[in-house]
Amino acid sequence: MIPVTHYLALAAILFVIGTCGVILQRNVLTMFMCIELMLNAVNLTFITFSRFLNQLDGQIFVLFVMTVAAAEAAVGLALIVILSRRADSLDVDQANTMKW
């Protein structure tokens, strides 16, 4: 049996990698992927506690997190398409105008 702290530490490391990625990256697409990575790290924590507390509720919550991630990806990628159409760049530092 693997100690529960192993999984939690792994999830923490992944979350930190995702956070650093969001700050470091200038490309809006890669920033978005880092957010997906952070959501997945949280999912791992949910599943871990679901396993070690012997309750299935954690797995249900992971399904909801995945639903929200899918909705977020749809809307966010639509926004990215508009951004690239209007600003002709995916650099977040370029997108500093509120109105064209």
């Binding site: 697409l29 978005f32 990628l77 690239s84 002709d88």
Partner: peptide, 17 residues
């Protein structure tokens, strides 16, 4: 989700990025 990402990457201008 990742296939959606790849589609959008193809839609926008990668060369420029």
């Amino acid at each position: 989700i990742m296939v959606l990402f790849l589609f959008v990457i193809m839609l926008v201008n990668v060369r420029e990025m």
